[in-house]
Design a binder for these strands. Sequence first.
DNA 1: GTAGGGTTAG
Length: 693
Amino acid sequence: MKLVKWRSLPAGALQNSTTLAHVIQSYAQTKQLKKGKQLHAQLIYAGREPCIFVFNHLLNMYAKCGEISHACNLFDEMPQRNLVSWTAMISGFSQNGKFQEALETFSRMRTAGETPNQFAFSSAVQATSALGLLAFGKQIHSLSLKLGFHVELFVGSNLADMYSKCGALADACRVFDEMPLKDEVSWNAMIDGYAKNGDFCEALQAFRKMRLEGVAADQHVFCSVLSACGGLKESGFGKSLHSFIVKFGFESEVFVGNALTDMYSKAGDMESASLVFGIDSEHMNVVSCTSFINGYVEAGEIEKALSTFVESRRQGIKPNEFTYSTLIKACASEAMLEQGSQLHAQVIQMHFDDDPFVYSVLVDMYGKCGLVESSIRVFEGIDSPTEIAWNSMLGVFAQHGLGKEAIRIFDEMVVGGMKPNAITFVSLLMACSHAGLVEEGLDYFNSMKKMYRIEPQQEHYSCVIDLLGRAGRIEEAEEFVNKMPFEPNAFGWCSLLGACRTHGDKERGEVAAEKLMELEPDNSGTHVLLSNIYASAGQWEDVKSVRKMMRDKNVKKLPGYSWVDVGNKTHVFGAEDWSHPQKREIYEKLEKISNEIREVGYVPYTAAISCNLDESLKERLLQNHSERIAVAFALISIPVGKPIIVKKNLRICLDCHYAMKYISKVVEREIIVRDNSRFHHFRDGMCSCGDYW
DNA sequence: GTAGGGTTAG
């Protein structure tokens, strides 16, 4: 298209529609809104009514320049409209993100008696796809089918894209197969569709077919294929693709570079990821940087993720919502309160706190760090929380055994018109289970299908087993297992086994243990639980045989350890672990507390040790459990007024739980212990779990 | 002689 400058317009050009149209079109293409407006004003000033052809160009110019409301006004004022005017409006709305309006215009056009052509169809399909309106998309599809436009290159590609974005891959395939002519865009609709729906192998397969049919890949295709490679978490094919990309000169394309970084990060190949741009590269941007950080997070290398973040900020890369949600998620998983709250402060400063992903993960992070109050505060500050945020809040209550609060938040959620999903019910049932709200839990389980049309899954059934088991209703739990439509998973059997251990049901415990050992032969927890059951029944011979089984299978008991954060540093303690530089002070504190709690009535619960040992030795072993050492260290290191939070990789032992209650009383501080199944808040001699866990 | 397509990260 020749670019015509306004100044060079020949005299009388305003009268000449063809020249005029060229000028307007060039303004549209180069997005020169100001000049377009000037020209429009000149036209009005000249007092000549433009013909429909020129009007259409003006519509298009305004739409392309983002002034969709101007286009709208003009469209309403036009003395007459034709198919092109309608189509320009539909695509204009679509391009400006106003998909609802685009579809309304499509309908109005039909009411006005215009028959859509391929242009109208492709814009309309785009809008349904953006809104995820599969049903409406199907209607448009059948209409295009009647008129024979469904096989047209653009319409077909858009339809395939619409179906795959809506997850209807079979329909996408059908449309795609009927197309007589396909280009790289059509192919990419399929490749990307497979990749986005998690069918990574099929995506790579489609890419191979495309190449076999002689269609050349462009940068979009490379991005989609790389995302499929990333999904496979394997960089072999991605690497060969990489050299292909370099050969065709696509490597310098920012999108492709980002996709490469992402692919390598997901495959855990952080070295190659860093080499795509080079960590010091000026081409490294916020997207590739976030992918990179996420790679470290996925690999569990949180320190490296954080230092990469700090380095990227130093280089002037401005983090966005994605960056923060990735980092905060990492802090949540590691319960790193200090770093997590620092990131929260930054999020507020940068006004990312209204992003749904960011606020949901903040709710989760504070919960996982033990600070329910902060979690609630974040949640209550959200304008209209998404389903994910509601689920996060519910999950926090569940982890902390706050059953009543969980039920309250669930009620609020439903009353507010939010639709609970399968995850909502997992949290709700867990909350009921941890709070001993058995009848409520059973009612909710039964309501899932009846009231909310959610088919209970494996995990929901497991929650019910847990619910009944914890409450000591082991017979009912067993009945429930027998009536289930499938065999319980490991979590289900483990719940039953745990319940049998707590309530001393040896026979059922053995059955559960047997099932568990089939499912997870290497799980040391199963063996330990079974051995504990025998120990509490005094069957030391059976304890020995379990131990022997573990030796034979080379199953190692997972060593228990506890950790405490002081400032930015994490201090880890094992049982009987005196390797800490401050061991003297810790030991003295521990002795002092032990004496104090005995004075106020603590008697060691030696039955918590399932070895046949001398009583005084058992007492000594209990006192030196990792959680006690960690608490002693926290008491001498964390200033009064700051919460004491101890994290533990196994479940807190019965005696430690008992002792913590006394400790919280004598030191007059709240102690929070996160074990591997929930939080315990010890305050003034009581635990938030009400001894029910 | 106007109007139409797909990309990277939670």
